[in-house]
């Protein structure tokens, strides 16, 4: 029963452009449209706001207002890998503060920031729902629990090595393809 993902209740995968095209004036579509844009681009770019406002007739200012109200939406691109550190109650009492500080220190960024090489973005979330493994972080879709500063540094370093390697490999492939 592996996770398939991407299915919707209408049984088909919907892209951002398909969703825009399908928009029929039904009310309440703004947030799903924004979510779809963010899924597509990784953030909500200026041009997506233009498109959505154009298609729905909702003023850009209002679209922007909705974006900034909800913490899910981002107006800037994210790193290739997203680290989400849990700052929920159970994680908090199990030491999430020092866990978050350790990530900030190891990657040289603050919560909400992205590393210069564009590899990592660090965010916090309120409860991932695995409180029994606190403190917990997620790297992309993988959850890691029962962390200490030391085990976390090991994890981050190993992950960073792998991530860099795959970037340089991809760059090598691109160079080879170009050459």
């Amino acid at each position: 029963m592996p996770v398939k993902g991407g299915i919707t209740t209408s049984g088909r995968e919907e892209t951002f452009s398909y969703r825009l095209w399908r928009y029929d004036g039904a009310p309440g579509e703004l947030i799903p449209l924004l979510q779809s844009a963010q899924n597509h681009f990784g953030y909500v770019p200026r041009k997506a706001i233009n498109y959505i406002a154009g298609v729905t007739g909702i003023p850009e200012s209002e679209v922007y207002g909705v974006i900034t109200f909800y913490s899910q939406f981002r107006l800037r691109p994210m790193g290739k890998h997203v680290i989400r550190a849990c700052a929920g109650t159970a994680c908090h009492v199990s030491g999430s503060k020092v866990i978050i500080e350790t990530i900030e220190d190891e990657l040289g960024i603050e919560v909400g920031g992205t590393t210069d090489d564009g590899l990592f973005t660090l965010n916090t979330v309120a409860c991932i729902g695995c409180c029994s493994l606190a403190p917990v972080i997620m790297i992309n879709d993988e959850t890691h629990g029962n962390l200490t500063p030391a085990s976390l540094r090991k994890l981050l370093r190993a992950f960073r090595r792998k991530a860099k390697l795959s970037v340089s490999k991809a760059a090598g492939r691109d160079a080879a393809a170009a050459g």
Partner: peptide, 11 residues
């Protein structure tokens, strides 16, 4: 500042 806590590799 607790910087030492997060920097230690051996907890």
């Amino acid at each position: 500042c607790a910087k030492c806590v997060s920097s230690c590799n051996f907890d």
